[in-house]
Amino acid sequence: MQSVFDIAGITPLDCKNSRIAAEGDFPVLYRLEGQKEERVGCFEAKRAFPFEKEDEYIVLLSEEGKDLGFIRALSERSEQERAILERELSRRYFMPVITGIQKVTERFAFSYWKVKTTSGDLEFSVKDTYRSLIHLGKRIIVTDADGNRYDIPDVTALDRDSRKKIDIYLW
């Protein structure tokens, strides 16, 4: 009997069958077959498990959104390639990190946040606050009304005042 993996035809992109390079601001995938090298094109890197496995199972997608394969772990790739991938991932998953909360007011099912972040002081609005917070143990990810995300890596590490402002949402 064939295993699920055989049926799925999963062959991870590793150093033997692929090469990753950067062209200007954009990452490009090359497929290797023996001595032959074929340029596949620009790709977008996406984590299959963005919350649980940040450095593993990185799926590469073509500009049209077609699956090009996945990289099992960043550590499998050369330092240079890893840098390219990490740059790409840090952009795709870019979120300002919230370091302090100055004010949260709630009005008409929206909450309005005034926060200190690694990208400076920001103000944003969150609709349907309870459903816009992703709880990952101590980590919390806030999604604002436009879809921008903000990271609170450890709620317990926030100062008391900041935490008090959001503790009604922490249930």
Partner: peptide, 25 residues
């Protein structure tokens, strides 16, 4: 992703024109 990007294509080359937060989507 976490931002919106306008990208210009010239053959196989790609150029970033502008990047902004998702308010600009």
């Amino acid at each position: 992703g976490g931002a919106v990007r306008i990208v210009l294509c010239r053959g196989e080359e790609r150029f970033t024109v502008a990047v902004a937060d998702l308010k600009y989507k």
